[in-house]
């Protein structure tokens, strides 16, 4: 196996992905990701020198518009699904030290 994902890498990926993994999940993830990256390494068989990366399959351009308000006050609808809220705000855990 060419790609060996170590504990440090998995911890780093956990930070990037905002995921908290159990030790068992970490072991599983190390194996899964190594195997997948080995598989993806197949792309290195291809010489891509001089080839432009393609993000969209055909030309798309920026869509511009005037910055106009077209919808009304949506605060009630916006808050409707919040796990915790007041009348007009989302509630999140305290982030400042008092």
């Amino acid at each position: 196996m060419a790609n060996v994902i170590d504990d440090e890498t998995i911890d780093y990926v956990g930070i990037l992905a905002e995921l908290e993994l159990s030790d068992e999940e970490k072991e599983q993830a190390k194996g899964d990701m190594s195997r997948m990256l080995d598989y993806i390494d197949k792309l290195n068989e291809l010489d891509t020198t001089g080839i432009e990366p393609m993000s969209h399959a055909f030309a798309v351009s920026n869509v511009m518009r005037e910055d106009l308000v077209t919808n009304g006050d949506g605060s009630e609808a916006t808050l409707a699904n919040a796990p915790e809220k007041t009348d007009d705000t989302f509630i999140v855990p305290k982030t400042t030290i008092s």
Partner: peptide, 9 residues
């Protein structure tokens, strides 16, 4: 989770 982690990597 598997795909989010691969994507983040």
């Amino acid at each position: 989770k598997r795909r989010i982690m691969l994507g983040s990597f």
